[in-house]
Design a protein around this nucleic acid. Sequence first.
DNA 1: TTTAGTATTGAGAATTAATCTCAATAAAAT
DNA 2: ATTTTATTGAGATTAATTCTCAATACTAAA
Lengths: 143, 143
Amino acid sequence: MDKKILNKFKAVLKKEQLKLTKQRHAVLANMIKSKGHRECDEIYDQLKSNGENVSRATVYRTVAILEKYGFLRKLELGDGRARYEYKLGLDHHDHMVCIECGQIIEFVNSEIELLQDKICIDMNFKLVRHIHQLFGVCEICQN
Amino acid sequence: MDKKILNKFKAVLKKEQLKLTKQRHAVLANMIKSKGHRECDEIYDQLKSNGENVSRATVYRTVAILEKYGFLRKLELGDGRARYEYKLGLDHHDHMVCIECGQIIEFVNSEIELLQDKICIDMNFKLVRHIHQLFGVCEICQN
DNA sequence: TTTAGTATTGAGAATTAATCTCAATAAAAT
DNA sequence: ATTTTATTGAGATTAATTCTCAATACTAAA
Ligand SMILES: [Mn+2]
Ligand SMILES: [Mn+2]
Ligand SMILES: [Zn+2]
Ligand SMILES: [Zn+2]
């Protein structure tokens, strides 16, 4: 794992009086390697098939820590299963979701981000995070 | 209940070979009357306290129909409980959610809506619906 | 490197919003 | 009024997530 990321993880853990365990390392390493939008069970299964056994409970506990400290972002797409994507150091983006095939397409629009900030300033709302998801039918599914 | 709304509801039900029952009427009437962002259990409790007993199962089943046909909009704010708001004939808006007190503030920004449409056109994505939620600290909770 | 102190893990139980089941009932059609 | 068809409700079920707690693994001090 990249030394910078690992050091940040160690710093976070120390600050929170948490210990660096094989399991926590394995979850983070796995998320860095496969950069999709992933359900906890997927992570669990993939770790298991790599021979790195981490319990489901620990996967859930670890992604929660990683989200809290900005390593991961949690997505809720309305199907009752949370997805996580690696985000540390990457540019912000939002998501389009195909309601036919489930495909997730990423998009960025800095104008929207600016307008969003302006709304919050105008309304004296301190923005922490946002969700902007577009649901519709992707190019492939239209044919 | 407003005759236009009731007629539209009747038309929808007929089209779908569903029957107009006391319970379905009660749920719709209740949603029209109290225009908040409401959990199913709230609707259930309020109906019960009005003496109009509708089972939880029927509340869930009815809001699903009402959402499908545009009477209601479903909100998922990330706490695992869906909220519904009445929307038929009302202007579109999105939501800011205070992470301290849970307050839901509505906002509208037509520029963002236009940019959103443009993104979808450019990417050949047929937009059906969207979620734009801003999470942060409201004016009151900042003091 | 031992030891003491503290945090973590995993297996399965618990939780909880939402959905399902199906016999009894109510609405619509004839 | 009778038949047909859909609906309801009570409680069981589902499924993602969280919790429990005894056994185990880190960490730092001696
Ligand atoms: Mn993404
Ligand atoms: Mn609203
Ligand atoms: Zn698609
Ligand atoms: Zn607030």
